[in-house]
Amino acid sequence: MSMKKYLIDTFIYNDTANKKLLLKILQLSDKTGAVKLFSHLINSQYKWMARILHDPKAAEMSWWDPLYCFDDLEKQWNQSLDLWLKYIASKTDEELSDEVTFIGFDNTKWAASPKDIALQLNYHSIHHRAQIQTLIRQQGIEPDFLDYIGTKYRKLTP
């Protein structure tokens, strides 16, 4: 499997899991923490893309703000995800492995490959999804099983 396909598949898995998560967040009496973490995932996708594209506003973008209202989460998620899917689709495996430069947290120049940035975003999504699942459980709601393997394994009949 090419890295390009792997990255797209991973973004699609996270998209499916995160959209299921939104249905659970909807049921929460206190959505504050979950909305904050979900907004952070969206903002991270926007900020990393802005860094890659050398957007002059990238350094000013926050990892945590804006805090979206619940009703805007899916729309913003879709937009931030679409940027990444289109970007990856436009690149070869080699281009995804070539380092790009960006201005980092300390206002100095840094470098990483788009492949590694995309992997970070996907692994970061898994991390914060687990935190949101904990918030769901703390409010007395059973979280969905969103593990990757649940999308791949199948029961065999004897």
Rank of each mutant, 00 (worst) to 15 (best):
Q138L: 02
Q45S: 01
K36L: 02
W64T: 08
K4D: 15
F105G: 12
L146H: 02
L156T: 09
G33I: 02
G104K: 15
S44P: 10
D93E: 13
H124I: 07
A17D: 01
L73S: 00
L28R: 15
A50H: 01
L135E: 13
F38Y: 03
D147S: 12
D98E: 14
Q45H: 03
D71H: 14
Q79N: 15
M1E: 03
D106N: 12
S62C: 11
L67H: 10
E99T: 14
A112P: 01
P158H: 09
L156V: 04
K24D: 03
I42D: 04
D30M: 15
K152F: 08
K47Q: 12
A111L: 02
W48I: 01
L146R: 05
E99M: 14
W48S: 03
S39H: 14
I149M: 13
D147I: 06
H124V: 11
T151D: 11
H127P: 09
I141Y: 14
F102Q: 06
K109I: 08
D72N: 07
Q139D: 05
H128V: 00
F102K: 01
T92H: 00
K19V: 07
I52R: 03
K155W: 10
K152D: 09
L83K: 05
F105P: 11
K109P: 02
L83C: 04
K47I: 05
E99F: 13
I88W: 13
T151E: 12
S2E: 10
R129Q: 10
G33P: 01
S90A: 13
A34W: 07
L67P: 09
E60K: 11
L7F: 15
W77G: 15
T32Y: 07
L119M: 11
Y68Q: 11
E95D: 06
S44M: 13
N107F: 10
M3T: 11
I132A: 11
W84N: 06
I8N: 14
K57W: 13
D71P: 08
D55H: 14
Q131F: 10
P56Q: 11
D116I: 09
N14Q: 10
L37C: 10
K20M: 11
D144K: 05
S113F: 08
H40R: 00
R51N: 13
D106F: 10
M49A: 05
K20Q: 13
M49T: 02
D72I: 02
E94F: 05
L121K: 06
Q133W: 01
H128D: 00
L41Q: 04
M1W: 00
H128A: 01
H54W: 12
A111T: 06
T108N: 13
H124D: 09
L83S: 09
K19F: 09
N122T: 06
E94C: 01
A58T: 08
A89M: 03
L121I: 05
W84S: 04
L73R: 00
K115G: 08
S80N: 00
D15I: 09
A89C: 09
T134Q: 10
D9S: 07
K4I: 15
E142F: 01
D116Y: 04
K57P: 14
D15G: 08
T32R: 02
H127D: 12
L53D: 04
D106H: 08
V35P: 03
D147N: 11
L53Y: 04
